[in-house]
Structures are given as structure tokens and as C-alpha cells.
């Protein structure tokens, strides 16, 4: 199924040697505050790991940032720029549903996101639960999406792991809000301790579905 006419513009880097042997796909979405690359080291033996490039990966005054971290959209966690968020979500939809990276027909990748990348991963899960194997979201807020934007698709037991950014009350509260909203949609949510990214990744690495 094609996700429509939005022009594909998401870049990515594959960690480890591309190609064989076949492994389940893992798409990682970092953000300017969370560079996931160090935590991903070693996972390429278990997964086909693609690190997606945040569209705004460099401050315009800086040159030659080596990593793929950066901003996906503008605005605050509680008030993101809706259009920027929506356009990135559209790109992510194209990437997964139109199989931009050749994951294979009908592939159901795991999404691992942090910060803005996690918010996008959760939003995509709400749109296309049947095309994902699960989501691990670190420091995520479930952004206030436009009314009627997302089709009311039951998440039907989709495994989602959520880790707050820190043990601060507001961070935990935000993760708890996201967890409640996702449970209400039928997701199988697991709440992780802050800093337990390693735990989430270990779960992924051993193939556990949360």
C-alpha cells in the first residue's frame, strides 16, 4: 500500500553490514537531546538497525556534524509546531509503509525513539499499529494531536515500552499520561524506570516482545 504522494526525504544510516543474514528490522529515531547511536552498538547482530536522520540535523551555523541527531520539528513538548510534526509523521509513514529502505514487503519494524523521535514513533504506532512490531519510547510525550487527525485504530495489544526522561515528577507524570492514553487504545504498555534504556534494549535484543 502506498502512503501517498508526499515526497520521500528521510535519510538513514544502516549500522553494521547491510544485507544478509536477514534480521528483524529496527528503526531508531534519535533527537537533539538523545543520541541513540552509542546505545545501539551491538544490536546490529540481532536486528537490521537503521538510524533515521532527523531532518534538521545541524544548527545552521555549525558545519559537519557527524551524527544523525537533530530536531524533527520545532516547538515545545507540550506545544509542538503541528505542521512540522505532521510533515515528519508523513515522512515516517512513507518510510515504513512504502518501504523506502527495502525492509521487505509487509515488514513490521520495531521503532526505538527518544525525545521528539519517540513522540513521532508513538504517533505512527497510533496510525499504523498493524505495520509495527512494537515501540520503545524514551523521554516521550504523546503530543496533542489534532482532533480527528488519527483514525481511531485499536492498538490491539501492540507492545509499547515507555521510559521517562528522568525520575523528576513531571517526567514521570508525562510518561504516565502517555501510558494511560496508549493503554486506553489497547496497547500493551510496559513502563520502564528512567535510564533503563539498556533494559529496553536488552528486551529487544533477546527478542522479547515487552
Amino acid at each position: 500500500m502506498s502512503a501517498g504522494g508526499a515526497h520521500p526525504a528521510l535519510g538513514y544510516r544502516e549500522l553494521g553490514a547491510p544485507g544478509a543474514p536477514p534480521r528483524p528490522p529496527l528503526l531508531a529515531l534519535a533527537s537533539s537531546d538523545f543520541d541513540l547511536e552509542p546505545q545501539l552498538a551491538g544490536l546490529e547482530h540481532r536486528f537490521r538497525v537503521l538510524l533515521l536522520a532527523a531532518p534538521r540535523r545541524a544548527n545552521p551555523r555549525r558545519f559537519g556534524l557527524p551524527s544523525l541527531t537533530g530536531d524533527w520539528y520545532l516547538g515545545d513538548d507540550e506545544a509542538p509546531d503541528p505542521l512540522g510534526f505532521g510533515l515528519c509523521l508523513e515522512q515516517l509513514e512513507r518510510f515504513v509503509v512504502d518501504d523506502a529502505a527495502g525492509l521487505g514487503p509487509g515488514a513490521r519494524p520495531l521503532l526505538l525513539g527518544a525525545g521528539q523521535g519517540a513522540a513521532l514513533a508513538l504517533a505512527l504506532a497510533c496510525c499504523w499499529p498493524e505495520r509495527l512490531a512494537g515501540v520503545v519510547a524514551i523521554a516521550a510525550a504523546l503530543p496533542p494531536l489534532p482532533e480527528g487527525m488519527l483514525a481511531e485504530r485499536p492498538l490491539a495489544g501492540l507492545p509499547i515500552s515507555l521510559a521517562p526522561a528522568s525520575s523528576a515528577v513531571e517526567d514521570r507524570a508525562r510518561a504516565a499520561r502517555a501510558a494511560a492514553a496508549l493503554r486506553a487504545r489497547g496497547a500493551r504498555v510496559r513502563e520502564l524506570e528512567p535510564g533503563s534504556i539498556e533494559q529496553a534494549l536488552a528486551d529487544l535484543a533477546c527478542g522479547a516482545r515487552c
Binding site: 502512503a3 504522494g5 508526499a6 509546531d81 505532521g86 509513514e93 496510525c127 487527525m149
Partner: peptide
């Protein structure tokens, strides 16, 4: 570009939310 067949993302809804227009 938006709201096309197969997509579940409504660009129009995001435009409205952004106050564009």
C-alpha cells in the same frame, strides 16, 4: 501532496492545528 490515497496522516488537520490559512 497530502490526504492522498493510502495515507492515514491528514495534512489538512495539521494545517488547521497550526493556524495556517
Amino acid at each position: 501532496m497530502s490526504d492522498s490515497a493510502g495515507s492515514r496522516i491528514s495534512r489538512r488537520a495539521f494545517l488547521r492545528a497550526a493556524g495556517i490559512g
